[in-house]
Simulated assay, not measured.
Amino acid sequence: MSRAAMFRRLAAAAAVVSLMGLAACATPSRPEAMSLAATSGLTAAPGDPGYHAVTSVIVSGGSETNPLWTAQVSNQDLKTALETSLAAAGYMGSDGPNMVVTANMVQLQQPMAGLDLSVTSRIQYSVTSDGRVIFNDTVSATGTAGMGEAFVATERLRLANEKSIKENIKQFLTRFRATAR
């Protein structure tokens, strides 16, 4: 085999290995996949407590995704998903008494490996109105992504993160609605 042919084969092998490495890079969670659309039974109507009253959402405890490690949920992505979900449910606005929703990501429990990946998120929510706390609870929710959804483990982990956060927001809205009545 000539030296030129050997060099081409080595270059091709290096390119394939590089592309495989890129395919395994972790990507951040997508707010649109974590957001809850308007859902029957969770949507506020005029006259309901909190209807168009949430003026601010504060989020802490999230982590930025390191592409060389694992998918995470950043504060900004969680905030966007929570604001979008609150808007879809009829809570965002300035028509009622000003309400502030605070969400603190207490834990994002992720598996190290597996075929079906399950992620459990624990978020502590607090809702205040005119300085007084009207809701304070920690919500825990699990999301699972299987091999059929994504072959690459880093993508399955991102999908499981998104499902967990979406379910967490859904449970928060359910509890808040039940408490605020």
Results as ranks from 00 to 15, higher is better:
Gly114Asn: 01
Thr144Cys: 08
Ser121Ile: 13
Ala11Met: 15
Gly131Tyr: 03
Thr65His: 04
Arg175Lys: 15
Pro49Cys: 06
Gln109Thr: 08
Pro31Tyr: 09
Lys79Phe: 01
Thr39Val: 10
Ala5Leu: 12
Leu86Phe: 08
Ala5Asn: 02
Val133Gln: 14
Asn98Thr: 03
Gln109Leu: 13
Ser63His: 10
Thr39Tyr: 08
Ala44Phe: 10
Gly47Ser: 01
Gly50His: 11
Thr55Asn: 00
Asp137Arg: 11
Gln171Ala: 03
Ser121Asn: 14
Arg30Glu: 13
Ala71Gly: 09
Pro28Lys: 01
Glu64Met: 04
Trp69Asn: 12
Tyr51His: 14
Val139Thr: 07
Lys170Ile: 00
Ile58Asp: 12
Ala13Asp: 00
Arg3Ala: 12
Ala26Gln: 06
Thr144Gln: 06
Asn104Trp: 06
Arg132Met: 09
Asn161Lys: 08
Asp77His: 03
Val59Trp: 03
Ala12Trp: 13
Phe176Asn: 04
Lys166Asn: 14
Ala87Phe: 08
Asp48Phe: 08
Ala26Ile: 06
Ser2Gln: 11
Ala113His: 05
Thr102Val: 03
Ser29Gln: 02
Ser164Cys: 07
Asn98Asp: 15
Val127Pro: 06
Gly62Lys: 09
Thr70Trp: 03
Thr144Asn: 06
Lys163Val: 09
Leu42Trp: 06
Val119Pro: 09
Ser60Ala: 14
Thr154Asn: 07
Leu78Val: 02
Ala88Ser: 07
Phe135Tyr: 15
Phe176Trp: 15
Gly96Cys: 05
Gly41Ser: 01
Leu10Trp: 14
Thr174Ile: 05
Val152Asn: 01
Glu155Val: 12
Leu117Asp: 05
Ala37Asp: 05
Val119Cys: 09
Thr65Pro: 03
Val133Met: 14
Ala12Tyr: 10
Ser126Gly: 09
Ser2Val: 02
Arg30Asn: 10
Ala15Arg: 12
Arg177Phe: 11
Ala103Pro: 03
Ser140Ile: 07
Thr27His: 07
Ile165Glu: 12
Lys166Gly: 06
